[in-house]
Structures are given as C-alpha cells and as structure tokens.
Design a protein around this nucleic acid. Structure first.
Length: 252
DNA sequence: TTGTCTACAGGTTT
DNA sequence: AAAACCTGTAGACA
C-alpha cells in the first residue's frame, strides 16, 4: 500500500506558514497596504522533486459561501458534444460539468474538445481580481469544473496544453465541498515499482487557493479522485494565461 | 463477516 | 509516445 508512504499535507499547519509569496513577484512591488485583496497568508509551501505549489485560504467562509451561490446562479456549463472528450479513440461524457470564461476570442482545447471562452461575469472578474491581488499574476482565462458530489471526478492529467504560458502558474480556487487532490510524478506512473517518488496528497478546502508553479505541470499529473462519502457540490476555478496568437502546432 | 470504499493495474486507438 | 476515459480486482476498513 502506498497509503502510509504518501506525503500528506494538512492545510494551514503553523510550521509551514510562509509570509511571502515565493513565486515571481514582478507586479507585487506596485501594491501596498491599500490592496483591495490582501494575500491569503499564511501560505503553505508544498514541494517535491519538480513540484512547487503554494496553498492558502483566499476567502473567508462567509465570502466563499456567497461566491459559491453566485456562481451556481451565473455559470453556464457546456452540454452535449461540448461536454465530451475523446480518449483512446472513444468518446466519453466527462464525469463533471465544465465551463470556460475569458478574454474575447480565447479557445482552450484538450482531448479533442475545443471550448470557446464566454465573456467574464461580474463574480468571475471579482474572483480573478482577488487571485491577482494575492499572487501578483494576471490571468486571461478560467476553466471551471463543477463536481456535483463525490462521484464526479477527474482522472490523472497534466495541464500541459501548448497554448498555456509556461512561465505563468495555474491558480486553482475551490468553493463548496472539500475534496482530496492527488499529485503523482510521471515516472511513478510508468514505472511504479522502480520509482520511489511518492504521491503528494492534500485536501482543497472551501475558499482555498492552490498555486501550481512551473515546472509542476511538466513532471506531475494531478487528479480529483472519487470520494463516495462526499454528498455536496464543489466548484473549482483554474485561472490560466493563454498565449494569444500561439496556435496549436504539431511538435517538431 | 460482509458490504463499501479505495488504490492500482491494465485496456482501448488515434 | 502518450492520452482530462473506463473497468476489474484485491485488500483495507468498519
């Protein structure tokens, strides 16, 4: 069993507090105590070989509750063919709901689907500003995944799409039901017996922000496994930076 | 014990 | 080469 060997990270462990954001702070010096959104300290640093994440609470419980309800009211999820992916040649309806919002004209593609960004809603712009205020990074796109209960899930994958800016972290905001989240190193997938790199597991809480810094998505897969005990809904927003004009091209 | 749950391995085809 | 999927199975747990 890998259970006892797994690296488990408890949210907000005092000894893991980090008072400053470690990932690039270019935009940081311009802001001061008049910040509309203070950083979600204490940050918790999560590190492993090639993995670099920061985790913290971005919203109070009251505000997170409000945002969850607003998103349940506002967000339009894809249906029909746009809610299907092609894996190993077969079409599947994804075991969750998905939506994309972002700057005009942006398209996000994976596993045979091409999802055009809808225009930002007020709530999504508010959350995006909060993430930018907390991280110093700007984002032009968000992928929303809605897991109605513990049976909804997402399989192991990397966010390694070509159109993503490789220097920009991916910012993952969680609202609603807390869910387990698992990272696995790519070598641990192929050669599980040889590879000693243990999975990294954490729980993503209501109102939390997980920053996945480069090169995390180059080496680590992540998934949101089934948890049958969970009976309520989680909404996840992953803010990204898509490089404009960088069309998908075949590798050399 | 026994039913429920999870982790893991392995399959598919472009 | 690698995949944002699935199912089956064995072992853990209550």
């Amino acid at each position: 069993m890998s259970k006892e060997g797994a690296v488990c990270v408890e949210p907000n462990t005092p000894e893991n507090q980090h008072l400053e954001l470690l990932c690039t702070g270019e935009l940081r010096e311009a802001v001061d105590e008049e910040d509309e959104f203070p950083p979600p300290i204490p940050w918790q640093k999560i590190e492993a070989l090639g993995l670099d994440c920061d985790y913290g609470l971005l919203f109070s419980q009251e505000e997170a509750n409000r945002l969850f309800l607003q998103l349940e009211d506002e967000v339009e999820y894809f249906t029909g063919e746009q809610a299907k992916v092609q894996v190993f040649g077969k079409m599947h309806s994804v075991p969750r709901k998905q939506a994309t919002y972002g700057d005009k004209g942006l398209v996000y593609s994976f596993s045979g689907v091409h999802l055009a960004a809808r225009v930002w809603t007020p709530t999504l712009e508010y959350i995006r500003n909060a993430v930018t205020g907390a991280t110093g990074h700007t984002f032009n796109f968000v992928l929303i995944n809605r897991y109605k209960d513990g049976q909804d899930h997402i399989g192991e994958h990397r966010d390694d799409e070509r159109e993503l800016d490789p220097s920009c972290p991916i910012a993952s905001v969680s609202l609603g039901a807390a869910r387990d989240f698992v990272f696995r190193h790519k070598d641990a997938r192929k050669e599980p017996k040889k590879c000693q790199i243990e999975p990294v597991k954490l729980e993503l809480a209501h109102g939390s922000l997980l920053l996945m810094n480069p090169p995390t998505n180059t080496y680590w897969y992540h998934s949101l496994p089934v948890r049958r005990k969970v009976k309520t809904t989680r909404i996840n927003l992953t803010f990204r930076r898509i490089v404009r004009g960088c069309q998908k091209r075949k590798k050399d």
